Amino acid sequence: MKKPIKKSWMIASALTIGMAVLTPLQAGATSVEPANGVTVQIEQQITGTIKSIGESGVDLKGRDGKNYYISFYKFSEEQLEQMKLVEGQEITVEGGVVESYTDFYTFEIYKKSLPKEVTNEELTKLEKMFNEVKKLQKEFSDDMTEEEFDKKFEEIGKVYEEMYKITRPYTVANWQPPTFEEYMDEFGFAEKNIIIAEDDKKELKAIYDEWLKLEKDDQEEKANEKMEKFYEILNPYLEELHPPQTFEEYLENIELVEIPAETLAKLKSIYEDIPKAEKDYNTDLVDKLYEEFYDIISQFIKPQTFDEYMADNYEFKVSEADNKQLKQLYEEILKLDYKEEQAKIEEKWEAFDTILEPYFKANKEILISASKLIINGQEYLPQ
């Protein structure tokens, strides 16, 4: 059984790919009505429990029973470290509503990450390109074909490249790279008593020094070639540090129905051929082997029961009548052959999602750009 892949996850990735380089529109002083019809006052105060923690924000369950996503983009990394956020913790937030995840990251926030040496003329160019990316991001939709999505994604990438050309010289000039010894210590070889041969260590240091020089000289292509050579030497040690999972270990982590011995042998052979193809940088073969492996093994994965599927994927409860319809559709999907009856499977998943649509809307997260946080009585304001 496979649920049809929608564009939603791709759009989400396109919207967030620029978050580390992109802005929230400054909210006005009036109330905003999000898509789920719940009116939230700008700069209102919300108290709730952290459900999950992301790189730049948290999912919050409010005392009012509503779901929120709280963006911390206005706060510094040092402040976020001081907060020591944990799941299940209660926090109080003051902030303004935004309409989209893309609105969290403003040019003013982006500007804080830029080197001070960037000129006013360059800032003007960067702001124009920044706003162009924001405009392109807002053009993504679930109705786009994969080709349209790829084209839009490519357009955004080109603008980022132009922005990168402006900022890179300053970034390189201010760059304080780790020494070779510091870089190697980060891998943790000493913790596992893995000794790198002296000849290899000597060659790795020489390559690392050459790589640093090429990076500073803005010769990225040659620098990348050096780093590839670096990891060709280092990879055997990395494999010793993180030994690959055996086929048997892989099987322990998934629940399967009984697989015929002949099929099991074929799966093991494919599984062991994949790292060989990866070592040879044969990406076409790697893709082919992965596809063949998952096409075979997916036939033997023990499907979740309807109740398990609902519990794992949705926090909300559905009505008894809807639950009955959903269960019937789910069990009909399980009976279909995912290879031969894809059209029927997609049709049933669409019917499944149509029933759930009102619940998605009712439970949609309200997006808040935080401007003040209170954690364990400690107040935090953006720096």
Rank of each mutant, 00 (worst) to 15 (best):
K2R: 14
E357M: 11
V38P: 01
E148L: 08
F140Q: 00
A362E: 15
K213V: 09
L329W: 01
E146H: 11
I366F: 00
L212W: 07
K288W: 09
T49C: 04
I46F: 00
W349T: 02
A190W: 03
I259P: 08
P244K: 06
T145N: 12
P382V: 02
L285H: 08
E346S: 11
V318W: 02
I333Y: 07
Y314E: 05
E182I: 05
K3A: 15
D280H: 14
E146Y: 11
K74Q: 12
W175L: 06
A362D: 14
F107E: 07
L80E: 09
T39C: 07
F352K: 02
E255D: 14
Q304W: 01
Y330M: 01
Y73V: 06
E346D: 15
A190N: 08
D209P: 10
V86E: 11
Y250P: 02
P178L: 02
P236A: 09
Y309K: 00
K288S: 14
T49K: 09
L126V: 01
S8H: 09
D143H: 08
K268T: 11
G62M: 02
G65H: 10
E278H: 03
I42T: 13
Y105E: 03
Q378C: 04
K324T: 12
Q45K: 11
V93R: 00
L136M: 07
K302N: 15
I17S: 12
E341P: 03
K339R: 12
K128T: 10
Q378P: 06
F352T: 12
M163C: 02
E87D: 03
A343I: 14
Y314K: 06
P236G: 14
I259S: 01
S371I: 10
E220R: 06
E240P: 08
E108T: 09
F140P: 02
Q44T: 13
Q342S: 13
I91N: 05
D312L: 09
E249Y: 05
E81Q: 15
T49L: 00
T246A: 05
L204T: 04
K135A: 12
A261W: 04
E315S: 12
F189S: 08
D284C: 02
E99F: 13
I11H: 06
S13H: 10
K111D: 08
E315A: 05
